[in-house]
């Protein structure tokens, strides 16, 4: 016989009685106190799954419940009743070795999900979504450029058209949504180019002026087309939101201050996603240039010139940066020249 000290609540009032809960070998269960003697059959009784060291509960068919605090014989009594699979989970939760194993496994799985799972899923989903969806976003983004950062281009119209025709000719065949190329004079930005949603590409006047050869600009343009072609903006949005959601779910409750703690890891992961997209676009541009027998040195050269212009930007640590280190990008670009022209894609 197993005898456990328990609190009994009859389920009709919140009254609490101290009782003794007795399990007989015959399969009979007794609730006993000075003024109480109730009998039940073991088959009619259920227990709630164990969680940590919260009190065990035995539930009876008449709606009453007995609560038992930690007790040497408690486990033996619980073993008489049907087990929830959650009790296996409970066993793992309480073994140091198991926890260490789970911890290592969780880190590996989480790393795999963030490094491979989410990017692959986002890629698949993004390519399934037609690019037309980005139309409004693209319009808005261009408006923001025009309102806050840029003025109309000061390049001669002829020069703009000549470049646009060259770019479009080379890169805009067979597209659902035609590429749009815009030149802008953006004092605050300096030499740079941007791919906005829906295939809008903005190139600053300073960028055009910095180039010593039109093939350099073609390379930059191809890099931006790489973002469009790879659906990087949609993928970025998908990846960022799923990652943020996942990390918030794992670290705390959405909406409370503890989600602040999820902010930094999220930023780090998002910066990494961004760097991966840049590398992908650089590869796209390099492959494009190689197919036209244009040396990737052109792209590497202008990249180098750009980085020399803003030496002050070197203070951002690599892991926080949205772009890979310029030296690494240049080395990678140059390495494409040694490849066979059709050898990679």
């Amino acid at each position: 016989m197993i005898s456990l000290p328990a609190y009994r609540y009859d389920g009709k009032t919140s009254a609490r009685q101290e009782v003794s809960l007795n399990f007989f070998d015959s399969g009979e269960v007794q609730i006993k106190s000075l003024d109480l003697d109730l009998r039940y059959q073991l088959d009619d009784i259920s227990s709630t799954p164990k969680v940590g060291k919260i009190r065990a509960q035995f539930k009876f068919p008449d709606g009453s419940m007995c609560e038992v605090n930690d007790h040497p014989e408690l486990d033996a009594a619980l073993a008489l009743l049907p087990q929830s699979f959650q009790n296996k989970v409970h066993t793992i939760e309480n073994r140091l070795i198991a926890i260490v194993g789970v911890l290592v496994l969780a880190i590996v799985v989480l790393y795999g999900v963030i490094q491979y799972g989410i990017p692959m899923g986002a890629k698949y989903v993004a390519h399934a979504i037609p690019i037309e969806i980005e139309k409004n976003m693209g319009k808005d983004a261009l408006q923001i450029f025009d309102k806050f950062m840029c003025k109309p281009s000061q390049l001669p119209l002829k020069r703009q058209q000549q470049l646009a025709v060259k770019f479009i000719d080379e890169l805009d065949s067979g597209r659902d949504l035609p590429l749009q190329i815009h030149f802008r004079f953006c004092e605050k930005i300096g030499p740079n180019a941007f791919a906005l949603p829906s295939g809008i590409i903005v190139m600053t006047d300073a960028m055009v002026k910095l180039a010593k050869h039109d093939n350099e600009l073609l390379g930059v343009f191809a890099h931006e087309v790489g973002h469009v072609e790879g659906r990087h903006i949609m993928r970025h949005i998908l990846q960022d939101s799923v990652t943020a959601l996942l990390l918030v779910l794992l670290t705390g409750d959405v909406g409370s201050a503890s989600s602040l703690a999820a902010a930094l890891p999220t930023l780090l992961v998002q910066a990494k996603f961004s760097r991966d997209f840049e590398t992908e676009s650089d590869d796209y541009a390099a492959n494009f240039l190689r197919k036209r027998d244009i040396s990737t040195h052109h792209l590497a050269d202008i990249l180098k010139r750009m980085s020399e212009l803003d030496k002050s930007g070197g203070s951002i640590p690599g892991f926080l940066s949205t772009h890979p280190l310029t030296e690494d990008r240049i080395l990678r670009l140059k390495s494409f020249n040694s490849l066979n022209k059709n050898g990679s894609n």
């Binding site: 976003m137 808005d140 983004a141 923001i144 450029f145 950062m149 605050k188 930005i189 300096g190 030499p191 740079n192 180019a193 941007f194 791919a195 906005l196 949603p197 903005v202 960028m207 930059v220 890099h223 931006e224 973002h227 990087h232 903006i233 970025h236 949005i237 910066a271 997209f277 840049e278 676009s281 990249l303 750009m306 980085s307 212009l309 803003d310 002050s312 930007g313 203070s315 951002i316 926080l320 940066s321 949205t322 772009h323 310029t326």
Partner: peptide, 19 residues
């Protein structure tokens, strides 16, 4: 909103980590 992929991360680049 200006979420765009710039060619380089420069100091003046509003989309980069403007540090």
């Amino acid at each position: 909103t200006a979420q765009s992929s710039s060619f380089i991360n420069s100091v003046d680049d509003p989309t980069g980590v403007s540090g």
